[in-house]
Nucleic acid binder design. Structure first.
Lengths: 149, 149
DNA sequence: ACGCTGTACTTGAACTTTCAACCTCACTCG
DNA sequence: CGAGTGAGGTTGAAAGTTCAAGTACAGCGT
């Protein structure tokens, strides 16, 4: 079963990465960042929050945003209320790319997963993934030290 | 559901990557290569075959083996029957690393997945992954051109 | 024997990710 | 206030991955 899991997940990831690189000119993770931004109020988000939502490190996000900025899809903006802060803002161009490539991507995902699974299986998989994620929640650093709370 | 899937799989991958980097000094993919080699007859395998089994490109494998060679865990060997060919050979040292780190890794996997899922869920997940993998099989390049067969 | 096509693998450059160090600003507390 | 602690974010270098091109041998047809 573990083998099957590894096999399937790597295949799917490679597949989607190629699809997006081809159709949208960016890897899957970067695409995910644009999606997150597009769904945020005013299409902008604080760096740390975006990193958390996308489950990547702040460092990785810094580099990623630098690249997306170079491509013109994201812009940085100083945060008015906290002088340390930065907002990542989805540009019009970035939004356009997203709109252009979203249908193809959604389609790729559907073809790869949903079309092949029965509705019950989709339900099962959802539940399983929720359980797994719960167990892997990057533990609150203080979780090990409850006496400090 | 798709969100849950992305969330859980990336969390798990990060988790295992860190675990192995810490305990075995290499990323998950490289560990997988050693495992494959360890299970092959005479602990050696042709490069292309290894790449296929591990689901990575030949290029990636070349670089990976170069690194593993530098670490002393794998050795290259000319293939006697085909002068173009190379065999990747697991060294004693490589085997030792594997033996040392396997229990911890197996344990990490168990804790992350199997301990949290019911036996039925494990069965369901296995079936689901098999279905997905089947649909993603890197298609035979000629698959699109059946008239050429 | 000759050239053609394809297989096996490597290489280098461009790109992405990680890791550890770093800077700046916010907050707390004596 | 002023020092200490820590949060927000960036940076540069090292490690890993991808992509396109390249070398060398195998195998086939003529």
């Amino acid at each position: 079963m573990w083998r099957a899991y590894l096999h399937a997940t790597t295949l799917l990831e490679d597949h989607l990465d190629r699809q997006l690189q081809r159709d949208a000119g960016m890897p899957h993770v970067y695409y995910g960042l644009l999606v997150h931004l597009s769904q945020a109020p005013r299409r902008r988000m604080r760096m740390t929050q975006l990193a958390k939502d996308a489950k990547i490190t702040r460092s990785r996000l810094s580099h990623a945003v630098a690249r997306l900025e170079k491509s013109g899809w994201v812009r940085r903006e100083d945060c008015p209320s906290d002088k340390r802060g930065q907002n990542a803002v989805l540009t019009e161009e970035g939004y356009a790319v997203l709109r252009r490539s979203a249908p193809g991507h959604v389609n790729a995902v559907r073809q790869a997963m949903f079309d092949r699974l029965t509705p019950e299986q989709v339900g099962q998989l959802g539940e399983i993934m929720r359980v797994m994620a719960e167990g892997l929640q990057p533990a609150d650093p203080k979780a090990d030290l409850p006496w400090l709370r």
